[in-house]
Design a protein around this nucleic acid. Sequence first.
DNA 1: CTGAAAGCGCTTACAG
DNA 2: CTGAAAGCGCTTACAG
Lengths: 363, 363
Amino acid sequence: MSTSRVSTPRGAGRPRRVTIADIADRAGVTAAAVSLAVNGRPGVSDATRARIMDIARELDWEPSPAARALTGAPVLAVGMVLARPAEVLGNEAFFGAFVAGLQEVLSTEDYSLQMKIVESTEAEIETYRRWFGQRRVDGVVMVDLRQDDPRVPALEKLGQPALVIGGPGHHGSLPAVYVDDAVATTLLVDHLVGLGHRRIARVAGTAEFFHTAQRDRAFLDRCEELGATGVLQDAGYGAQGAAAATEGLLAEEDAPSAIIFDSDEMALAGSQVLLENGIRIPQQMAVASYEDSALARTHRPAITAIGRSAVQYGRVAATRLLEIIDADRRRPLPDAAQAATGEVRAIDPQLIVRASTAGADAG
Amino acid sequence: MSTSRVSTPRGAGRPRRVTIADIADRAGVTAAAVSLAVNGRPGVSDATRARIMDIARELDWEPSPAARALTGAPVLAVGMVLARPAEVLGNEAFFGAFVAGLQEVLSTEDYSLQMKIVESTEAEIETYRRWFGQRRVDGVVMVDLRQDDPRVPALEKLGQPALVIGGPGHHGSLPAVYVDDAVATTLLVDHLVGLGHRRIARVAGTAEFFHTAQRDRAFLDRCEELGATGVLQDAGYGAQGAAAATEGLLAEEDAPSAIIFDSDEMALAGSQVLLENGIRIPQQMAVASYEDSALARTHRPAITAIGRSAVQYGRVAATRLLEIIDADRRRPLPDAAQAATGEVRAIDPQLIVRASTAGADAG
DNA sequence: CTGAAAGCGCTTACAG
DNA sequence: CTGAAAGCGCTTACAG
């Protein structure tokens, strides 16, 4: 009976939890000594430390995060706010994979991820304020970067660990992690031009997000550099828009011989339209996507895509944020350290060539 | 300058946070009075309460969750452990949507969701132990219910708020929320038989999960009841398996005229195989899925599916878990209340008929 | 290397 | 209706 020593608490409801005082009692030392021992800090002899650790294990002691947080220790949580409806999130393969990647790394450091869904950008900023004000999180990840994003100055002002997902640019002095869309675009266009395509379309998602504009520019620039014609086709959000955009392209008198879609979902929707219209992929139309996924991989024909693994993206983001939090804790001078952590990190995109473009008989 | 009164703390690092003591000072009352006031408890006059609230707002006071937790208040967090690799999670549309639904409801109650990815069932159980031991969470959601799941007795023994996602059955005395797969199966089979199909295949996912076996049984039973022939085809996990299974079915001498897939991802992969083989949907083969999604909706032809919205599922689960946590806090006698909360709740599935089965010329 | 004390921010009885 | 005190579980100086 390991519980023999636990006296019945008043109220007799839940069992009283074991604390460092219990351990100290047993070990015949003071609670302070236990604290030093279990935290691996100097101040107790090796023998005492060993004895204390044994007792702690024996009593099944678990440190109280609340008590620790109260004395200024990290709360071991990072936050992420999403200003989009749950329905939209659910439809996006990227979200689940990104979160999974974040979790994977955070878990190993015993950090938890806290998420909140809000209605507006104002509510998002207010959430950051409250989270940091209450010391609910040690840092935050900010997603869906927009142009002239009001969240950036708000987070700068808070002066707390925050990592922007997206860029480069528009993230002010905040550290950021992003996939280099310019490089990704170059990879895609070069590949298609190399196959002989001279008229290439880009079916673009919501213009609101920063990367959309960035891809637009890089796409047009690169096409021009290579002497090809770039056709921009706005599609708005999701599969519906992509299908309509594809139909629009087919209706043109001078239709392209290759289409690059902004996401796997859009590429699949577009491919369906092509199939319906009796257009063979890749023989009559090459198809590529900025986003890879299991669906892109198993589709027939499999879709050529940029291998920005959302899972990997999440892992890199989590690693980076933990670094920032760590730097923040040991910062000697607030501003110097802050500046040092404000660096960006790019994730290199890779082109994964598959059947949807391979061997295309372009032009 | 609302900060005029804040004295510079030692160390001059972070600004000292404002506490109820600051408010008490200003209001000329004691900290206890402030506590009563801000928590809406009796014990202070209306006038005093109003004055205190004003000052709290003025000083931008935020309660410290750590301090509150230390005195026994709920920590406002629920946990979910996932014993699957991040990659697998990322590929599954269900995960992101379910989490989004959970979040949506939890956020409104100021609860946060804590997730952890682990390697094994043992690690999962250990995580529950630590979470509750440390009072890191007020309750947990358990997903991926299996037959004779060792997590069920482990959670029963912990005696803390826990909700099982899945069932019915195999969740012991724990409360559960599940989609009635038997009903879903009936809806699907009845629909197909009603269209004239007499030989119907079911392409099933991983046998490990509880619902797979449940669907198998319900499928065979219902086919028999209606005088149709049910063909079971195991596919293992994901799109790859579904494609192979579909090819297997086509190769049979007596191929079915309709296929029901376990997920949207599998249905899409299977449909691709059908298209490749020149088989028209729904004219030559009807296709249906146990799982709806944006992809199933926008696919051409759109896939008939069971409308268990994963988002909605998440919402129901969160609501239920919050009820359980609440009941647990006010429980008069540990066991009586525990029993009262141990009820299950089914989410009614709906059949959404789309082009992939409509107007099929069966048999 | 060890002990005694004060404090983190809040809540909860218990007196007045 | 209000005040003073003790306590939640831990950590951090500061003496010995």
